[in-house]
């Protein structure tokens, strides 16, 4: 950079930025499936993975689908609006897990059932004080925040 004129330095910087932006975009586009943390139920329904493949699935826990079976085994359905996939899981669930909430599970897809070995809860970006929610619920005007959240 030292022996160059100021105008040429600016030109080099601009070219460098354009090259960086293009290469980042290309790498990001090529690896988009690898960079995405999980697959949605619709993607799994469209292209069912083999029984041996371990992958992550994410979506909303369907209302009224949560069943606690024998021991610590539980079952529920995960949906993204397009497709619904039943899930079984044995183990301890995180605090935020619940019906109507987002979740991400790691596991395998066997005979149309997702057998999860690990479950994470997905938190959305809403923060509300407990007292406010209690008051809203008492008045019957509280709305579940996930209705507008189609990203999960």
């Amino acid at each position: 950079m030292r022996g160059l004129k100021k105008k040429r330095r600016i030109q080099i910087i601009v070219v460098a930025f354009v090259a960086l932006a293009i290469s980042t975009a290309l790498i990001g586009y090529a690896m988009r499936d690898g960079i995405n943390f999980f697959r949605s139920p619709s993607q799994i329904a469209a292209e069912p993975p083999t029984e041996r493949e371990v992958f992550r699935m994410g979506g909303l826990v369907e209302e009224g689908s949560l069943r606690r079976g024998e021991g610590k085994t539980i079952s529920f359905s995960v949906t993204d609006g397009g497709a619904t996939i039943p899930v079984t899981f044995t183990g301890v669930l995180p605090d935020l897990f619940g019906e109507g909430e987002g979740m991400i599970g790691t596991g395998r897809y066997v005979n149309g059932v997702f057998e999860a070995s690990e479950i994470l809860a997905k938190h959305d970006e809403t923060y509300m004080p407990k007292e406010v929610v209690d008051a809203l619920k008492e008045q019957g005007v509280y709305q579940e925040p996930d209705a507008k959240d189609s990203r999960s």
Partner: peptide, 12 residues
């Protein structure tokens, strides 16, 4: 915003 299937929530 680019890869919306992640674990981290969106911008607070």
């Amino acid at each position: 915003n680019f890869w919306n299937q992640g674990l981290h929530q969106g911008a607070s």
